[in-house]
């Protein structure tokens, strides 16, 4: 049963988001894929349109809203470009062209808009991605909160897509670096905590996925954005019908991020990253992958766990730092800092 009105929890990327998307979108549309590619049903990070043998166009779209618009480590422009690249990267595609749609509020400072667009452009330039079109609208004051950017990414995919449903028992789970920094930076900014040294990790993870492809044995790649590590691992477990075990001791978390999470009562494993990937590989490739990642821009990469077994009731288990076992649950509800 659904609540009668949209709440912020419906957009928090956790349990409620999955529920409402299923109710209002996936159940409603009839034609959900094209030419046997990946479509709406898969609810993966990007869709594909096959254009030949072993070749597809990959497409993704995402709207970006963030408060504050400028945060330690980036701004909404950098976030939009990065997020779009990452959504293509985790399906195994090379981004080639973007289109963007900007909706901005009347009275918004042009200088800020310029900075935001410059940041967006800088990311595209670095990865040689073309901006081939877009849309620009202004809304009357108070009808949009500052600026909303929608970004469509088009990529080229050679071979099979990296689907969340590809994980198999025995596979190892690698994370490219400390998780939750983006979420921590945003929450700190929203709460007015200025003494925090944590910055958003906002950056393309494409180089990590390229390394993983080169090393081999690659099964799944995923960026733990909204809902954090908990959400990402639960999605993989559910779509692959497997149980997963991860080891708390191995999961890299910056001290600053952990301190903030504990102070606010937010589970650190549900904090978003915008510049880390979860990469699932055949067991025999994991050490080589971590070694390669560490010398190629991801010095804190770690093997954090493994896919244990096939399961009809897929679950993610966390071996805690004191050796206990608990479930790493899908984050539920809005991420509100605990107060008392």
């Amino acid at each position: 049963m659904m609540a009668d009105k949209i709440t912020l929890a419906h957009g928090a990327g956790g349990y409620e988001t999955s529920k409402i998307i299923e109710e209002l979108i996936t159940k409603v549309f009839r034609k959900k894929k094209i030419w046997g590619g990946i479509g709406l049903e898969e609810l993966d990070d990007a869709a594909t349109i096959p254009i030949g043998k072993d070749r597809s166009i990959a497409v993704t779209v995402d709207s970006y809203t963030v408060k504050p618009l400028f945060f330690p480590g980036g701004n909404i422009g950098k976030l939009a470009a990065t997020g779009t690249i990452n959504d293509l990267a985790v399906i195994g595609a090379e981004p080639i062209a973007f289109m963007d749609s900007i909706v901005v509020e009347e009275g918004f400072p042009i200088d800020d808009l310029r900075k935001i667009i410059e940041s967006y452009e800088k990311v595209l330039r670095e990865y040689d991605i073309a901006l081939i079109g877009g849309d620009f609208k202004v809304m009357p004051k108070n009808q949009v909160d500052g600026i909303v950017i929608s970004s469509t990414g088009i990529g080229l995919l050679e071979g099979n897509p990296l689907l969340d449903s590809n994980a198999e028992p025995g596979n190892h789970i690698v994370v490219t670096g400390p998780i939750g920094d983006h979420g921590a930076a945003i929450i700190a900014a929203q709460l007015g905590i200025n003494d925090i040294e944590v910055k958003s990790d906002c950056k393309p993870i494409l180089p990590a996925i390229r390394e993983a492809k080169r090393v081999g044995g690659l099964k799944v790649a995923k960026d733990p954005t909204r809902g954090g590590l908990s959400m990402a691992l639960n999605e993989i477990a559910a779509k692959s019908n497997v149980n997963i075990t991860v080891y708390e001791e191995k999961i890299p978390v910056r001290e600053e991020t952990r301190a903030l999470a504990e102070m606010t009562g937010i589970d650190v494993y549900s904090l978003a990253s915008e510049g880390q990937a979860i990469i699932i590989v055949d067991e025999e490739y994991s050490s080589e992958l971590v070694k390669t990642l560490r010398v190629n821009g991801f010095p804190e990469a770690e093997i954090i766990g493994r896919v244990v077994e096939k399961s009809r009731e897929p679950r993610v288990f966390l071996k805690t730092v004191v050796g206990g076992t608990r479930l790493l649950e899908v984050p539920r509800g809005e991420l509100v800092p605990r107060i008392c």
């Binding site: 805690t320 004191v322 076992t325």
Partner: peptide, 8 residues
Amino acid sequence: TYYGIRSL
């Protein structure tokens, strides 16, 4: 619960 102490 958070540290899975019951399981120990």
